[in-house]
Design a protein around this nucleic acid. Structure first.
Length: 635
RNA sequence: GCUGAUGUGGCUCAGGGGUAGAGCACUUCCUUGGUAAGGAAGAGGUCGGCAGUUCGAUUCUGCUCAUCAGCUCCA
């Protein structure tokens, strides 16, 4: 007999080799029906798992995130099984559960079409109806390889060969289908109640672009039909607020064939951009930053000195001027450093905080371009802080507070990730350790939880990344703080210390928006185009009821413009209902309706985009309200 | 860059080997209507670009460019 400690602390004696399913069943009949697996000493296992030692067991249920993951994992096997049934000879690669679904990679000469997806989905539903039980079995390495070779699964053979010596090689079998898999799974294909295949796309074998491109089928599945419907609904909602769609509809920006990845900002998009930049400037002045502007084209020797030529050249645009090589800047730091070098600095001057809204160009792969989120030229709201070693922590914490303040203005939640030294990097181990420790210390002192991304840092230093969460729960990397001991050495920049000797300052690179272009893209989706009053390209639209009010409308417009309110007049001879509809669709925060009544009493009938009719108020009252809303940046 | 799909008036899309069509938007006229679509007429496109097949191509083929989905990469 062995002892099982359950999550609530109770203990239970069971026979050695008892399955998790049996234990769940013994605890309660009802639990066995909703259980899909367990967590033994923190490791996830399925119901088929046999318990052989004293362990702590936590029964996982369908409603748990883990439960959903098991279900998606099994679904990927069902997908593979369906494909094997319909397209024999297809070779299987890998098929994991992912955040909202699963995928499976296939190698076949047949090109999967949309119709194929429908057929495959139908076959999957059949497999679900068959309620095939999943059986787990283990094989020795040689047996495993032999089995997979027999089935012609070359990719699986490769996977097995790469498994570590002591790995347990397990398989799962459902009906006629057997797949190499570590598990865990749900006990039967019948547990999957709702299945949907979403798309097919190419993916490299093992994620390496040197390898063969396989075909990847994406799908999702749920234990309840309702959950699937909700998920599909959420996808629809996300589509509706896609910044590329809204950017076109609201006339904010565009991308032209003549400049792939180089966005055009329209007058209305420019208003948003300018408001963001104004806000950015105000806040930086308050925090002791100085603003600079450096050129976008600089000569090759600068980029050699900075290390970009060696580490970043594939992404740089180069040109020749008077027979000399030049490059368009992909980053702003070298320019800032030249600015620092223009004169001698005393230790008393530090920290020096230099901000720049810097336009950079990067040659991104054509397939990576995506609206405003991924472009080839963008403006970084960059700043470089030059400081003494003992100022590092305070400066980093200052930036963290700054970022926090900034994101709250827009109602964003965020989380933080710390990236460490990449393979292609400069500097010594000691410097990297010092830099990483400085970032970690600041985070710990602020008591902020963070995730570590090994090897994901910049080539000159580690970084803290801020990942925004929008209202649909999607995340976007925006702000980053990067610590740099390299550039000051490479450029030999110095300050004079209290001892009268030269010393190397330490440098922070940081952005808050990340790129203004991307940030605007995120804002469009976050607000679904309904910008708060302070950002709205048009804050109010005057809607005259008849042509008799046109002249008054123009006077009113001029009055509001002189008060700094962004305003339009709809002068068309249309009915008021129609004008309201259009104003609402263009997401203007306020509609100001004027008819004979309002004209006589010098009032306006205000209709809010979000709250509907607000009734008639004095023009001066409206002006005050809008001004206040804009100043407070109310959401 | 790779794999697949797409590319028709400002926008959303239909069509199809014999030199193009709808709705919305736009212009003009009628209507002057009080909180999400009043009516009529008009203007607007070398069907992404370049070649090829054909008596004839926007439609078929090839190449190319751009976009979309994903991979890779990233602010």
């Amino acid at each position: 007999m062995i002892t099982i400690t359950l999550k609530d602390g109770t203990q239970k004696q069971v026979e050695k080799g008892t399955t998790v399913y049996q234990i769940a069943k013994d605890i309660s009949e009802g639990l066995a029906r909703v259980a899909i697996g367990g967590e033994i000493n923190g490791k996830k296992v399925d119901l088929m798992h046999k318990v052989n030692d004293d362990v702590a067991l936590n029964i996982l249920r369908f409603e748990d995130e883990e439960g959903k993951e098991f279900l998606r994992h099994t679904s990927s096997h069902v997908l593979a099984q369906a494909v094997k049934r319909l397209f024999p000879g297809t070779k299987l690669a890998i098929g994991p559960a992912i955040e909202n679904g699963y995928y499976y990679d296939f190698d076949t000469d047949h090109r999967f079409t949309q119709e194929d997806l429908e057929k495959i989905e139908a076959e999957m539903k059949k497999i679900v109806k068959e309620k095939l039980e999943l059986e787990r079995f283990e094989l020795s390495r040689d047996e495993a390889i032999a089995l997979m070779q027999e089935q012609g699964e070359d990719y699986k053979v490769e996977l097995i060969q790469d498994l570590p010596e002591d790995a347990i090689i397990s398989f799962y079998k459902q009906g006629e289908f057997v797949d190499l898999c570590a598990g865990p799974h749900v006990p039967s294909t019948g547990k999957i109640k709702a299945i949907k295949l979403l798309s097919v796309a190419g993916a490299y074998w093992r994620g390496d672009e040197k390898n063969k491109m396989l075909q990847r089928i994406y799908g999702t599945s749920f234990e309840k039909k309702k959950d699937l419907e909700e998920y599909l609904h959420r996808l629809e909602e996300a589509k509706k607020r896609d910044h590329r769609k809204l950017g076109k509809e609201l006339d904010l920006f565009s991308l032209q064939e003549e400049g792939p990845g180089f966005p055009f900002f329209h007058p209305k998009g420019m208003v948003i951009r300018n408001m963001l930049e104004d806000f950015w400037r105000d806040e930086h002045v308050k925090r002791g930053y100085e603003e600079i502007k450096t050129p976008i084209i600089l000569n090759e020797s600068l980029w050699h000195q900075s290390g970009h030529w060696d580490h970043y050249k594939e992404n740089m645009y180069v040109t020749k001027i008077d027979d000399q090589d030049f490059a368009v800047k992909p980053m702003n730091c070298p320019g800032s450093i030249l600015m620092f070098k223009r004169k001698m600095h005393s230790y008393k001057d530090l920290p020096i905080r230099m901000g720049e809204l810097g336009l950079v160009h990067r040659h991104e792969l054509s397939g990576a371009l995506h609206g405003l989120m991924r472009v080839r030229c963008f403006t970084q709201d960059d700043a470089h802080i030059f400081m003494l070693p003992d100022q590092i922590k305070d400066e980093i914490m200052g930036v963290i507070d700054f970022v926090d303040y900034f994101y709250n203005i827009f109602g964003f939640k965020y989380h933080i990730e710390l990236s460490t030294r990449p393979e292609d990097s400069m500097g010594t181990d000691e410097e990297w350790e010092l830099a990483i420790n400085a970032l970690e210390d600041a985070l710990k002192e602020k008591n902020i939880p963070y995730k570590v991304n090994e090897g994901d840092g910049a080539f000159y230093g580690p970084k803290i990344d801020f990942h925004l969460e929008d209202c649909l729960g999607r995340t976007w990397q925006c702000g980053t703080i990067q610590l740099d001991f390299q550039m000051p050495q490479r450029f030999d920049i110095n300050y004079v210390g209290a001892d009268g000797e030269k010393h190397k300052p330490i440098m922070i690179h940081r952005v808050i928006f990340g790129s203004i272009e991307r940030f605007i893209g995120i804002l469009i989706e976050h607000f679904a185009g309904k910008f708060p009053t302070w950002l709205a390209p048009v804050q109010a639209r005057i809607l005259p009821i008849t042509d008799r009010q046109l002249e008054y409308a123009t006077q009113l417009k001029n009055r509001l413009i002189s008060q700094g309110i962004r305003i339009e007049v709809d002068t068309r001879s249309e009915k008021i209902g129609y004008k309201i509809r259009e104003a609402q669709l263009s997401k203007v925060p306020y509609m100001l309706i004027i008819g004979d009544k309002e004209m006589e009493t010098e009032t306006i009938a205000v209709r809010s985009r979000d709250k509907g009719e607000l009734g008639a108020i004095e023009v001066s009252t409206f002006i005050e309200q809008v001004k206040e809303e804009a100043i407070n940046k109310s959401l």
